[in-house]
């Protein structure tokens, strides 16, 4: 279709595309773009959430961000969380998807149980399991001769402990998407390759993985974004402690917006975070298409 003027046929296509897109675009405009535009504007203001007073301050919030040591620390913490959570979660999800595809049906449901259990209750139960003085995990470790570990109460172990908890909680979702990708692979591909003498590792390498690429890209981007926006578990479990070890970006945004009453600064940090994630996402999409 390299004609300059679109044909009647193409115009018909554009019209359909527009009609099909319209409901979603209207919803996005009202509930996402408009508030986001406002947030971007707030980033250039000193905004008092409660009195509603606002004053233009230009790039002041961004200048503050550039020199705020806490912001740097929270970004670093978020990156650490991302590195601990996402690769392991994706690998485990794929392994589980392969396991349950042919495994007993109840196993799928079992792996999804954590995803449907309320975060509040999960944080209580895991808090007891991680208890430094009397927790279950320390009892188990004691059984194999490992001394008691501090887990959530130590600035070194708190973040890995939360990452493990979140892998446990979320891996079911990722598994589900891998499963959806796996069952969409036509069976005759495997049959043809097996007839040609391919072993199971080759089947995985040359059929399963390439055909899962769409799913992998989707999960990589969404899990990355979710990891960089992690808030609720940290808010419920450590509130950023001990000694700022789990203070992540969105927690810092939340604190600035609703505790320190610096909505403008919170918005500026959000814009920085979004730009950072946008670069990562576009890069991943490009990379996935280039291959």
């Amino acid at each position: 279709m390299d004609v300059r003027r679109p044909s009647a046929h193409a115009i018909e296509h554009y019209r359909s595309a527009l009609l099909l897109s319209l409901p979603a675009l209207v919803g996005l405009a009202i509930f996402w773009y408009w508030p986001t535009i406002q947030a971007v504007i707030l980033g250039f203001q000193d905004y008092n959430l409660m009195s509603g007073s606002q004053a233009w301050t230009g790039l002041e919030n961004y200048r503050t961000a550039a020199t705020d040591p806490l912001l740097g620390l929270t970004f670093l913490n978020t990156v650490i969380y991302f590195l601990m959570e996402v690769p392991l979660q994706m690998a485990l999800a794929l392994a589980l998807a392969l396991l349950v595809r042919r495994g007993p049906a109840w196993l799928r449901t079992v792996i999804l149980v954590p995803t449907v259990t309320s975060m509040v209750v999960v944080s209580v139960i895991w808090g007891l399991m991680y208890h430094p003085n009397s927790g279950l995990i320390n009892s188990l470790l004691g059984g194999v001769g490992v001394p008691p570990q501090p887990f959530l109460t130590s600035s070194q172990q708190a973040m890995p402990s939360i990452a493990l908890l979140m892998i446990w909680k979320n891996v079911g979702f990722s598994m589900l998407f891998f499963l959806a990708g796996l069952v969409s692979i036509p069976r005759n591909y495997y049959e043809a390759a097996a007839t040609d003498g391919a072993n199971s590792r080759q089947l995985f390498r040359y059929i399963t993985l390439p055909l899962l690429r769409g799913t992998v890209v989707f999960l990589l981007i969404t899990n990355t974004v979710t990891a960089f926006k992690v808030f609720t578990p940290i808010f419920l479990i450590t509130e950023g402690g001990p000694i700022n070890a789990t203070r992540v970006v969105v927690l810092y945004i939340f604190e600035n917006a609703f505790r320190f009453n610096k909505m403008g600064y919170a918005a500026a940090i959000s814009v920085l975070l979004a730009l950072f994630l946008l670069v990562i996402s576009v890069y991943s999409l490009r990379a996935s298409r280039a291959r």
């Binding site: 773009y33 986001t36 808030f231 969105v250 945004i253 917006a257 979004a274 946008l278």
Partner: peptide, 13 residues
């Protein structure tokens, strides 16, 4: 791009 902004930021709006 809409998934990139934390909801906490646009919640009030």
């Amino acid at each position: 791009a809409t998934i990139l902004i934390p909801f906490e930021t646009i919640m009030v709006s």
